Computed example of a mutant assay.
Amino acid sequence: MGEENLTIMEEFVILGFYELPNIQDLLFGIFTVIYLSILMGNGLIIVITKTDPALHTPMYFFLGNFSFLEICYTSVILPRMLMNFWSQNRNISFVACAVQLCFLLILGGTECFLLAVMAYDRYVAICKPLYYPVLMNQKVCIQLVVGSWICGIPVEIGQTFQIFSLSFCDSNKINHVFCDIFPLLKLACGVTSINELFVYAVSVLFLTVPFLLIIWSYVNIITTILNLPVGMKRSKAFSTCSSHLIVVTLFFGSGIITYLRPKSTHSPGIDKVLSLFYTIVTPMFNPLIYGLRNKDVINIIRELCKP
């Protein structure tokens, strides 16, 4: 039997937007501004929700944790992307790639569960207001947040280990903007159908199940809101929920299309654009969606800005 032409990979090359060589400096500037806006916007929400006693409620407790998660999530991706633009050195070691993928999957799974928790919080607040102080007490809120952060860790570590246990062929060029599952599977030798099946199973667990729970929550919420008298309460309830739904649509929409569509339909260009939505666009718009559409947050920012 002939020996298979396999290579022990020591590093990969993240191609990123290599097809746009003339605007690398422009892209560096754009993504630098985006990263700074994510840090400042989400950081401001964290500070406001932690320091102002009026916002020490479950909804803002979850929002503060969500903003912290968004900072962590983008920090897994954007600093290395900016470094690649600046130095034009797109190499990433085997271990660094594995670590990036692992944290990306863990934090992405956390975001799925935390968005579901935030939807449940709105469901209880609107549909069961009399039970809200009991069902969403401080202990329960902490348990829900901690559970969102840790429940996916074993699964995502196992998935990362499974991906990087594969043998890779001669090419080490990842045609993507960061280390992600399907671009890595394209470089793997042999049959990867079992790995792909596991990816779809985990995607159903982390994407579809929380998304269906969110849909169920909002069907009940909308039904309850429509039964409220016409006035401020209905308008405020719709405003609060619509902010959450915008974030849900951006994140889950791009995530589900990326990870649940057949491998044969994947194309590098589309995958790069979709990946930017759930890793960068959602964190960037999170402060705008929750801040500029929230009167409580706007009033506190005005107070802070007063001389």
Rank of each mutant, 00 (worst) to 15 (best):
F206E: 06
W86S: 10
L135E: 12
S148M: 05
A98F: 10
N227M: 13
L213K: 12
E111L: 15
L78V: 11
N220C: 04
L187Y: 08
L276A: 14
S75F: 04
N65A: 02
S239D: 12
L44S: 12
Y60N: 02
L115H: 06
L6T: 03
E4I: 13
S275I: 00
C305V: 00
L245V: 06
G190W: 07
S267Q: 13
N91V: 11
C72Y: 07
N91G: 15
L213I: 13
L105M: 09
N42Y: 01
Y259G: 02
I194H: 14
T192P: 14
P58C: 04
D52H: 08
M59G: 05
C179F: 04
C305E: 02
V202P: 14
M1L: 13
T208G: 12
T249H: 08
S87W: 02
L213V: 01
T282D: 14
G152T: 06
F31G: 10
K272L: 11
V145I: 10
N89E: 06
P129A: 01
S171L: 02
T74V: 15
I45T: 09
I92E: 01
K186I: 04
G109F: 09
N137M: 07
L6E: 01
T249I: 11
H56K: 04
L185R: 00
Y259Q: 06
T258A: 15
L107Y: 04
N22C: 06
T7A: 11
P79K: 00
W149M: 15
V76G: 07
S75I: 10
L135N: 14
S264W: 08
C72G: 08
L69D: 04
Y131D: 15
N195I: 10
I142A: 00
L6V: 05
A125C: 11
C72P: 01
C241A: 03
V248Y: 10
I153G: 07
V99Y: 06
M9Q: 09
G269E: 14
D180Y: 02
E111S: 15
S264K: 07
G255C: 08
F206Y: 05
I157A: 00
V273A: 13
K272Q: 15
Y131L: 15
V95C: 00
T265M: 09
P262G: 06
I214A: 09
M118H: 01
N5S: 11
N91D: 10
T49S: 08
R261M: 14
T110R: 12
T240I: 12
F178P: 12
A96E: 10
S203L: 07
S75T: 11
C305Q: 08
S87T: 10
N89R: 07
K236I: 06
C141T: 11
P268N: 03
S37N: 12
C189F: 12
M59F: 03
D121V: 11
P21R: 14
Y200H: 13
P53M: 05
F31A: 12
F17W: 07
S264T: 11
L304S: 10
M81R: 09
K295V: 15
G158P: 08
L304K: 14
C112D: 14
V140D: 01
K306G: 00
L274E: 03
K50P: 11
L135I: 10
P79T: 05
V47Q: 13
Q88R: 15
L187T: 06
V47Y: 13
F238K: 03
K173D: 15
Q159L: 15
I46G: 01
L166H: 06
R90L: 02
R261Q: 12
I221C: 07
F285S: 03
V199F: 14
P183M: 07
C241Q: 04
G255M: 01
G2M: 13
